[in-house]
């Protein structure tokens, strides 16, 4: 190109196209395994791990699988194993989200053929993970009552892409002055089609409705 001529190449390539391809590969793998996969997203401190401990104890066909994305420690995976889950930790280091390749590698470490439910506990972060498809069939966003009822309006992308929303730590709602009606109103506004379940890890029976939703097979058709 020594003549210095410039020309324009039209590409129209999605920036996340490589991740999308990796996610599509995961999705096919999940389907082959007959595995329901849920990507669980929230802010830090929303209580996802405690909730999953309860789910692991209550799921009718144990064990469940959990892939935990965490910045540094493997503390959460240990807790989940103690609750009976099969669990792998992905230490993301300075990365603020999981991507599809990290999930693919973690899946290889789980004996996934024996599982029927896999939960990917994403890194606590309200912005970054939303853009990355991991190959999951369904996304679940978690809002803890301690975060306040206006969170869905501040971070609409997270909630708008969710197939269901959990209002967690619901037993603390009155104590922290959480406005239930406003929360449901705000969630309907940004995620009109997502069912909302109020749950609390301290009241295991509160998980029943969400578990029934999880039991409905989704995206595993021929």
């Amino acid at each position: 190109m020594c003549n210095g001529a410039v020309h324009r190449l039209e590409l129209q390539q999605r920036l996340l196209s490589r991740n999308d391809q990796d996610a599509a590969r995961n999705r096919r793998q999940f389907q082959r395994l007959g595995l329901q996969v849920v990507n669980l997203l929230s802010a830090p401190g929303s209580g996802k791990t405690s909730l999953l401990e309860q789910l692991a104890r209550r799921w009718p066909r144990p064990p469940i699988g959990v892939i935990v994305g965490d910045l540094a420690t493997d503390h959460d995976a240990t807790r989940l194993r103690q609750a009976g889950a099969r669990s792998v930790q992905i230490c993301t280091g300075d990365r603020c989200h999981l991507d599809a390749v990290l999930v693919e590698r973690a899946l290889a470490q789980l004996d996934a053929a024996a599982l029927d439910l896999l939960v990917i506990e994403n890194v606590g972060n309200l912005v970054c993970p939303t853009a990355f498809d991991l190959g999951e069939q369904r996304r679940v966003a978690v809002l803890a009552v301690t975060e306040g009822e206006d969170k869905p309006l501040k971070y609409p992308a997270l909630f708008a892409t969710a197939d269901a929303v959990l209002i967690n730590k619901s037993d603390l709602a009155d104590a922290v002055g959480f406005d239930r009606a406003a929360a449901h109103h705000n969630l309907r506004a940004v995620a009109p089609r997502a069912p909302v379940f109020e749950v609390s890890a301290r009241q295991g029976e509160s998980l029943t409705a969400w578990m029934q939703w999880l039991e409905q097979p989704h995206g595993l058709g021929p």
Binding site: R8, L9, L11, Q12, L15, L16, P192
Partner: peptide, 20 residues
């Protein structure tokens, strides 16, 4: 109405490059 399809706004697309 509250329910809608998003037609645009989700793009993150490399449209073109100019090379020499």
């Amino acid at each position: 109405g509250l329910e809608c399809d998003r037609l645009t706004g989700q793009e993150l697309t490399l449209m073109a490059v100019e090379v020499a």
